[in-house]
Design a protein around this nucleic acid. Structure first.
Lengths: 334, 334
DNA sequence: TTGTATGCGTTATCAC
DNA sequence: GTGATAACGCATACAA
């Protein structure tokens, strides 16, 4: 367990009988080094098990070749088998892989966590920052932008401080509600998402607008995108509006919770009550009955955010806003 | 959008009319600085928006105050609404929060990703490394250990290179199978996990042993812990052993897939076929019928791994192995 | 093509 | 209590 003094450029240079500069050139793939010397250096590197010290390199190059993806939620929420964050992570991950950059995932749920993330990103530990969903008016994106650190959000930041990528919430919701209306549903309720998040706000607005246009009254209960909250909201709705015959839930997870409540209440789906979710996570095809839902291209959000960020970081032209399409996926629950 | 030259210690020092050393002392909370000077320095820091350059600090302190959690899976698998990884992340996150260390999550699914992670960790970009599940015989833990970088695995590494934390797979499985036997089930099948992962191997072993002890033959199909693979494995089992009356699935997700296949095949659960899963993820209470399963304290695994690592990193005594208990949670599927 | 010298922004070891 | 000054490990402009 000897914390063996790790080899430095200097050590490799001595071993190979050359200068530090030459070793550095070889390590960084410069072609202006004689073949045989390259060979000798490479052998020395292998023998000593040399690995460049990233901090030292960063200090001089001003680059870290890694970018941060920040989840401003408690770890609990982020990964509570909601597939939205994971989907974004996938997309980001794929795109960064292609650019040979390291993904650094950071959770900023607590106040302390948020501080730590701020120190970390502002401390130039990453070349750019991606925000996966913002709660309320987080000042961090703006702060980063002012510090000259490229940043991109998913969903419009309330202060318009940085470019963002989002999906067409309104279009998706209105198609879902229109579908229920077309099917002759008369009492269409909704289980809305948290009202301090863009996704929660926009989906509720879409529901209200479409329903109002058709001359129907809104029946609203609010959840927080989790399954448990969906189950509770459904109980509330059944209580207040026993005659409802359809529900649009702002997330598949809440729809799943609602399904359970409806089963417990003896309501058949879709015969008595039609249910439509939002997201189209993998689980949606496995609920009983399989869930009709609004699909959003989650992974694509991650990819687009990353492309945008990389363009910003390399000084290429970039767009301020990217909006991706949504689509109604019809299964059996409605 | 001016990439404003960010202020350094030097700039703050000039502004406050003191030396760099003094500014450094104040920034790092040294008490040996006169109150009024501290005040002046703090003001200068605020005015300039100074944030320490982490690379520079790391270069001299040899610490990064961040630790890596490595997921050696494709992003796809890691977050495919399997709740195991998310649970570990939660536990790790909580424990690191308490230690005021930054969590750096890294995906090492592809070969390129694995390389990048190797460079990153070996490059001393983190103070320690946590491995969430290993596939086959990954040499990285051993390499890190040799380089003097603290590392901990979840599940025993095949080469015993580093300390690890795991749960009592065998005990949990044998309790589940014994429960089925006690209920009078005669033809008990299993949907095993991937056989290049400790969890997959041990759970299958537990099934075989317990069944053999009772004089029953093993009926095995292999999946990869995903829902889809569980559904497929169940079809295979029904095909080969139409008379089976119970199934133990090595993960809740596979159990969920099996449930779907059984429904499609017209088998009632638990009347015709009893089903038991493993994990007890949140979803288990929401399946139809709710899933009987072996609970493993997932979050606790993450916490224990982290505690172990932090002890290693600070030179405190630590144990080579930590085994956590499992428990049979009885619901309605068996 | 290769080596020398310098600087990146901190912290830490000294004197004062 | 405070200020010079020397590392830390690397990349690079410049000289040879």
């Amino acid at each position: 367990m000897t914390t063996a003094q790790r080899p430095t450029l200097e050590a490799v240079a001595r071993r190979a009988g050359v200068s530090r500069a030459t070793v550095s050139r070889v390590v960084n793939g410069s072609t202006t080094v004689a073949e045989e010397i390259q060979e000798a250096v490479r052998r020395a590197v292998a023998e000593l098990g040399y690995v460049p010290n990233l901090a030292a390199r960063t200090l001089v190059t001003q680059r870290t070749d890694s970018i941060a993806l920040i989840m401003p939620e408690a770890a609990t929420r982020v990964f509570s088998d909601d597939q939205v964050f994971p989907g974004i992570i996938q997309g980001v991950s794929q795109e960064l892989e292609a650019a040979d950059k390291q993904l650094v995932l950071m959770l900023a749920g607590s106040a302390a966590g948020h501080d730590r993330v701020e120190r970390y990103t502002l401390g130039r530990h990453v070349d750019g920052v991606l925000f996966a969903s913002l709660h309320g008016a987080d000042p961090l994106p703006g702060t980063l932008a002012r510090a000259g650190i490229p940043a991109v959000c998913s969903g419009r930041p309330l202060d318009d401080s940085v470019p963002y990528v989002d999906v067409d919430h309104l279009g998706g919701v209105s198609r879902a509600v229109a579908y229920l209306l077309d099917a002759g549903r008369q009492r269409i309720a909704t289980i809305a998402g948290p009202q301090d998040m863009v996704a929660g706000i926009e989906r509720l607005a879409g529901y209200r607008d479409t329903l109002a246009a058709a001359g129907h009254p809104p029946l609203v209960a609010v959840g927080d995108f989790t399954r448990e909250s969906g189950a509770a909201a459904m109980r509330q709705l059944l209580d207040r509006h026993p005659d409802l015959d359809a529900v649009f839930a702002a997330s598949d997870l809440m729809a799943h919770g609602a399904l359970r409540t409806l089963r417990e209440a003896g309501r058949r789906v879709p015969d008595d009550v039609a249910v439509i979710g939002f997201d189209d996570i993998e689980m949606a095809a496995y609920t009983d009955p399989p869930l009709t839902t609004v699909r959003q291209p989650i992974k694509e959000i991650g990819r687009e955010m990353t492309r945008l960020l990389l363009r910003m970081a390399t000084g290429q032209p970039f767009e301020q806003t990217v909006i991706l399409p949504t689509e109604l996926v019809i299964r059996e629950s409605a």
